[in-house]
Nucleic acid binder design. Sequence first.
DNA 1: ACGCTATATCGTATAATTGCGATGTGACAA
DNA 2: TTGTCACATCGCAATTATACGATATAGCGT
Lengths: 118, 118
Amino acid sequence: MEQDIITLTPAQERLAQMLKALGNPVRFQIMQTLAERQTCITQEIVETTPLAQSTVSQHLKVLREAGLIRGEIEGPATCYCVDPDGVRWLKDQIEGWLPDCCNEPAPMMWQPERLTTR
Amino acid sequence: MEQDIITLTPAQERLAQMLKALGNPVRFQIMQTLAERQTCITQEIVETTPLAQSTVSQHLKVLREAGLIRGEIEGPATCYCVDPDGVRWLKDQIEGWLPDCCNEPAPMMWQPERLTTR
DNA sequence: ACGCTATATCGTATAATTGCGATGTGACAA
DNA sequence: TTGTCACATCGCAATTATACGATATAGCGT
C-alpha cells in the first residue's frame, strides 16, 4: 500500500510527510497545545479535544512518525513534547523552499478562490 | 461533508489548508515545476507527471483554492504560476509559528520513528 | 495477586481523497 | 458552421484517512 505515483527526494518526501501531518486540524492544534504547555501526557491532550483517547493516540502516532513530536514513557503515562529538531528542520526547509520567488515580505489580502473566468 | 471537529482561527485554518495541499507529493512537485518554469499551461504540467489531464486539473484546483497558485486564461489555455503573496504568507506563518521553541538552527539526524519502548 | 490508570493497537464503519474516462465549454482556425 | 485544442468538471471506482469501541499491555499501589 501507499503506491508512489511520483518520486521525490528523501528530504522532499519527509517534508511532504510533515506538511501532511500538519494539514489535519486536529494535529495542527495538538502541536500548538504541546508548544504552549511544553510537555503533556496523552490524557491531557485528549482533554483538549472532543475526541476519543484512541483517536488522539492515532494522531500522536502520525506526528511522531513525521518527526514533529517525541514521546517518552514516564511511569505509567507517556510524556509528549515538540521535537525541536524536527520543527527547526521544517522551518528551515520551508524558508529555503522555492528560492526563485516570494522572498520579500508582501502585504496580503486573501480571497477564497480565483480563476479570472470560465 | 467536511465536518469540523475542531475550531481554528481563520488564519490557522488557511494555513492548515495550505499545508494539506502541499502534503500531497503530486501537488508538492507541481509547485516545484511551477517555481522553476515561472509559468506553465496545464498541458505542460500534465506532461511532467504520469497522470491524466483531469487528475492534474483537480490538483491544480486544490492548489488554487489554497491560494498557492493562480491561473489566468490565456487564449484557449490556462496559464498557471506560483502565487507569490500566498507563498510568502505561508513562509511567514511557518517562521513565526511555535515561537516558544525551535528558534535556533540545530544540526539534525533523522530516524524514522521513536518511542523509547512499549 | 488484584485492581486501577494511562496508553497503544486492533477491528471496523464511515468519510474524504485520489484516480480515471467521459462530457461540456470556450477560443480559434478553416 | 465545423472541427480541434486546451481545459474544467462530472460520475464513479479504488484507496486512504479518520473516528470509535473493544482489547491488550505496562506500571503502580494495595
